[in-house]
């Protein structure tokens, strides 16, 4: 593992995340359109807000990327004038941190759909903890709270985890990820032909 992130890593992470920042911004109104249906259906699409960390990590595969990505995406969303205002920044930090912890626990060596879903789940848990303080969600009726937690976690895994995973798969097909991934020993060996 190289020491820290290179400029290329940082810049690529931030730019990907800003693309997602724009998506996040557009996601806000959608979320609030779904919300009035009640029974916490909106929570199913909440997971989109964790996807930047997952995608950036799968592309760059280095420590710190997940956290940086989520911060960058939320500050992009924030500076675009998000209707959630400042809270997106702080949520971004928390969500990024929770995803990062999972990748760290796997020593940054696993990039499969399971670990990624787990990271997404972790982000979801992080956001719920924050909601506990901010949204008094502990004061919701129990059945309602359970729906909320359940839907949010399922949504996280499906959208951010599985969705992010397949998005990166599609990107890999275009060859673009080779740009930022280190060259392998095989590539070097091929020089001796």
């Amino acid at each position: 593992m190289s020491r820290g992130l290179k400029l290329t890593d940082v810049l690529v992470t931030i730019v990907i995340s800003i693309v997602f920042g724009i998506v996040y911004k557009l996601w806000g109104p959608l979320y609030y359109l779904v919300k009035p249906f009640g029974i916490q259906l909106d929570q199913l699409i909440y997971g989109m807000w964790f996807i930047a960390a997952i995608v950036a990590f799968l592309i760059i595969r280095k420590p710190g990327v997940a956290l940086l990505a989520e911060i960058a995406a939320s500050s992009g969303e924030f500076l675009l004038g998000s209707e959630f205002g400042l809270e997106v920044l702080l949520y971004g930090v928390v969500q990024g941190l929770f995803a990062e912890i999972v990748f760290m626990a796997a020593r940054y060596k696993r990039f499969d759909v399971a670990i990624v879903s787990f990271a997404a789940l972790s982000s979801g848990v992080g956001s719920l903890i924050f909601d506990y303080y901010k949204g008094y969600i502990g004061d919701l009726a129990v059945w309602n709270l359970s729906l909320m937690v359940g839907f949010r976690l399922i949504g996280s895994i499906l959208i951010a985890g599985v969705g992010g995973y397949y998005l990166v798969k599609a990107l890999e097909a275009t060859g673009v990820t080779n740009l930022v991934r280190p060259t392998t020993k095989q590539d070097y060996d091929a020089l001796d032909q």
Binding site: L7, L11, V15, I16, L171, V176, T177, L179, V180
Partner: peptide
Amino acid sequence: SIPLLSQSIRRAHRIAVAM
């Protein structure tokens, strides 16, 4: 989404090189 993302990555990479 794929061209937009992959183009962004390429662009970011080139900008990093230029920097």
